[in-house]
Nucleic acid binder design. Structure first.
Lengths: 228, 228
DNA sequence: GTACTTTATTTTGCATGCAATACGCTCGCT
DNA sequence: AGCGAGCGTATTGCATGCAAAATAAAGTAC
């Protein structure tokens, strides 16, 4: 998957944000290889912007854990090991455990309605085999459940950690059996939320993530480099 | 507490990091007031550096949640509400719960030894009433316990969230009774870790944070602005 | 041929200047 | 006096140039 080059110049005051988003996509899509150094000049020419916003983007992405900056050397795409991803998954599960019980208690009817609609759209994406849109809706549902817990810190931390390892989780969706199973698990998740059964929701989410990661890990271990 | 101005110029390739640290101190110490806009020119003159590294520092601090950047307006010191801090505390407790059980199982003897030494230094600081050094050692102990769990993502997320609200937690240490109690709680924490009693460690840590935050919150509610 | 200097080139880090935007102020109007 | 339009100033966003450092290349000794 290739990230298109910008045709229209971003407006004044949004260059930095634009560049950040673009470089993030380049990393997440794998176009910038994990472990490789990022040459500023090349990217600057490609994106048609100056080095200033690019270097600001690097700082942001470093905060997100996508690149690492060494003084006088520059930015390097972080190469995550499977173990590091597993660490993140464990934290995500922990955060969802915290969020699940709170969400079951505190979710507004509007939030539940929104999640239900997302769920239905996700099922549609599944039925028409639109993997990409399924994947995004899936992620969004999990984030919305967390948001329903109404803890700003939780939402922020979860979003950050989730973004970090997004590309790795994508790998698990290739198998159709797994995909089908994931959708059924999501049915249960929604059901538990609607019935506001906190502990149940927590356990389903936990199992859901574990089986999802098992599938992703299997797929990832096939690739020789250990990269998505 | 006032943050001293730099006398020696930081070395090439470290200006940005230096500025980040300095501005972070200015925010944490309260010298830059929550909710106020940060004027680049003034800081640039004060720190004797150019705007480039300062603006990079803003991006980093934005990632840490200490400032918010609006396009064409600039950086504003984030004003946390007590509710937002409470949200973070809840996450920190959750993260320590995850970390506690793992740490009890996986902590190396070296890690335990290191934490024991930190604890002893902390007790000394307490006995000689060195509040600042007590506070820092206290924070370091909690981080080291988390680190002992050997989950890189956990360490990173915990460190970030902990830094965000550091200045608020400081407020709870003013009362000598509370201080004494906290030290005794830390004795128990260390004991549970040494004996590798995960669930116990988890519960003590939880209670420790809750009572600490209760004290801090009380102190903070006295101040009219709700700021430390 | 290999290992170690020394030099040239590239690349990064920072300072600075210009353009775009936001902010404050005066002035006119009601 | 209160309010809004227009203008001037201050401030931010970005591009660019120069200096420091790192990397690559050439040369030299062994």
């Amino acid at each position: 998957m290739s990230v298109p080059s910008p045709i229209i110049e971003p407006r004044h005051g949004q260059r930095s944000a634009f560049v950040t988003e673009h470089v993030r996509d380049l990393i997440v899509s794998g176009e910038l290889k994990p472990g490789s150094r990022i040459n500023e000049r090349i990217l600057v020419e490609k994106l048609n912007i100056s080095r200033t916003p690019l270097r600001e983007a690097f700082k942001v992405l470093e905060g997100e854990g996508l690149v690492s900056i060494r003084p006088n050397v520059g930015a390097t795409v972080v190469a995550l090991t499977l173990e590091a991803v597993e660490d993140s998954i464990e934290i995500l599960i922990g955060l969802e455990s915290i969020g699940a019980e709170r969400a079951a208690r505190r979710a507004t009817p509007e939030a539940i309605e929104e999640i239900t609609q997302l769920h239905e759209r996700m099922v549609e994406a599944f039925q028409s085999h639109e993997l990409m849109s399924y994947f995004h809706l899936n992620q969004e549902i999990h984030q919305k459940i967390i948001d329903a817990a109404q803890n700003a810190a939780l939402s922020r931390v979860y979003a950050g950690e989730s973004a970090r390892i997004r590309r790795f989780r994508f790998a698990g969706n290739n198998d159709l059996n797994r995909w089908d199973r994931a959708v059924r698990e999501h049915e249960q998740i929604l059901d538990a939320l609607v019935r506001r059964e906190g502990p149940l929701l927590r356990e389903i989410l936990r199992a859901h993530h574990l089986s999802g990661w098992r599938a992703a890990r299997l797929a990832l271990e096939q690739t020789p480099s250990g990269e998505p």
